[in-house]
Design a protein around this nucleic acid. Structure first.
Lengths: 205, 205
DNA sequence: ATGTATACGTACCGATCGGTAACATTGTCA
DNA sequence: TGACAATGTTACCGATCGGTACGTATACAT
């Protein structure tokens, strides 16, 4: 068996076997197109064309378009937690400041032109069928996000930590969506402020 | 020109010219399929097949699939404001109770099995291209919702009414999305409680 | 030099996509 | 009965969909 299909591309470490370059180019292009224009809206032909490769190359590295979409989301997942942990690590031991930092960043991102929301959320909307490879990745990501937000709410000392954690999740998802619905000047720019108000109210109780 | 294309189907009043029946069946089926499974996921062939009509009938009443999708959303818009105004009319002069009633209802809807969120929001995710007929209807609906929420926040006497109105919108959109992402027991069930906390905090300031 | 493995390309598959041309049938009202 | 509008029937269009059979180029080991 050559290179495992449907496995995350690993950075070639030193003199390792060196993974196929076509697969990387394909995933790079797919990532960009899937995120910006949607998964269902993009055909495999356009992906291979813009990647400068051919269709068989795609299907040697990915078992199907659905699995390519799942791979796109797995990479998205990594980058998402990278951003999340960045905000967390910037304020050790201060969950409220961590949330504020993360949401401030989201609020800013939503005000960029052509903002297209969260790739995970969008994929789940595009694929409502349970068990779809892309949807599974998306659901796992959101479950984990919910778990961490609730844990942070508890660490803040909220009376009803689960409710506060869920409230923060609602605000975040709302920001992702309104960011792409309203564009500049939309409601998403107030996500950090509203979250802080909600936290304040939840701690007082 | 026979019957205007792309015009809302009006209920035949009395002995009026009686609008085409095929168009109604088509829109009924399209409404159900588009909402439950997504617009891009449904082909016109499946629509006409399940409606018991033929393709030419569809294209006699609707100029294109995109316009059929827009018609679906226009009907969705009507029903949405019907639900919204129901909550409003149930508590005249008490915007806070109006919001609570509306969000309680949303929270319950999100806990139904197979809940699929807001048709408007989903359509906007499926069609990021500006100017797409479906997206235009969706954006208009959300703009109006934002306007009304801000007005209600002002009527509550909030210090920063626009921020509160936007915060409520974020919670609502978050509920729509998490409803279909998490299913039963998800964060959306707490939307009314979180909104009330946010309102409380915003009035105190 | 030749085998072997790997990566890539050409050309193609059947199915479905959104949309249409041309004509037959039906029901309604005058 | 005649006119007309609405629907149905059948057959088709070019384009694109996701996916594949099969031959070729390159590299490395012996």
């Amino acid at each position: 068996m050559p290179t495992d299909k449907n496995i995350e591309l690993t950075i070639s470490d030193g003199h390792a076997p060196a993974p196929p370059k076509a697969a990387k180019k394909i995933l790079d292009v797919a990532y960009d197109l899937f995120y910006r224009r949607g998964i269902r809206a993009i055909g495999v032909d356009e992906i291979v064309r813009r990647a400068g490769v051919t269709k068989p190359s795609l299907y040697r590295s990915f078992p199907s378009k659905d699995e390519l979409a799942a791979s796109y989301l797995r990479r998205y997942d990594l980058e998402f937690w990278g951003r999340f942990d960045e905000a967390v690590n910037a304020h050790p031991g201060d969950p409220r400041a961590q949330i504020r930092a993360f949401l401030t960043r989201i609020g800013k991102r939503t005000q960029m032109p052509e903002y297209r929301g969260c790739g995970m959320t969008n994929a789940a909307v595009e694929y409502p069928e349970r068990g779809h490879p892309a949807r599974v990745v998306s659901e796992d990501n959101k479950q984990e996000l919910r778990r961490r937000l609730r844990a942070m709410a508890a660490a803040m000392g909220a009376g009803d930590a689960d409710t506060l954690g869920d409230g923060l999740l609602l605000l975040i998802e709302g920001a992702y969506i309104s960011g792409q619905l309203f564009g500049l000047g939309g409601p998403a720019q107030s996500v950090a402020r509203n979250a802080d108000l909600l936290i304040e109210a939840s701690l007082k109780k």
